[in-house]
């Protein structure tokens, strides 16, 4: 099981990613964030701790996730990003769409 989701506190969920976050994860990642009850979510934390490679489909997945939760949960944090990943987010101006730590 590469992508896991756990409840941190009430309404706060943390999704931990695998070493690579690419097109192969589309289904898994979608299943993770859609598994949360629509009414219950207030905040998502996506942990990039183990991720060292990510391609453009990762950006598509994150945007789709944002669209899915749009209007219901706008607080999506991307944490523990390594320099390479952070560079991708900077170039694609994701730092304006998400909170990156």
């Amino acid at each position: 099981m590469a992508i896991t989701i756990k409840t941190v506190s009430a309404g706060c969920y943390e999704i931990s990613l695998d070493e690579t976050f690419d097109f192969n994860c589309v289904e898994e990642f979608r299943r993770a964030y859609e598994s949360v009850s629509v009414k219950g979510a207030a905040q998502f934390i996506i942990d990039f701790r183990s991720t060292h490679y990510m391609d453009s489909s990762a950006l598509g997945m994150l945007i789709n996730m944002q669209k899915y939760w749009d209007g219901r949960c706008s607080d999506i944090r991307l944490i523990n990003t390594n320099p390479q990943v952070r560079k991708i987010f900077a170039i694609s101006r994701f730092d304006k769409k998400f909170t990156i730590e």
């Binding site: 097109f23 589309v26 289904e27 979608r30 453009s56 489909s57 950006l59 598509g60 997945m61 945007i63 789709n64 669209k67 170039i91 694609s92 101006r93």
Partner: peptide, 23 residues
């Protein structure tokens, strides 16, 4: 370059959305 990056982020977004529909 910014436009180029924006373009393939857009493509990626649409593609992933298409994949979701295909699934």
């Amino acid at each position: 370059l910014d436009d180029y990056v924006k373009l393939f982020v857009d493509v990626s977004d649409k593609s992933v959305s298409a994949v979701h529909n295909i699934q």
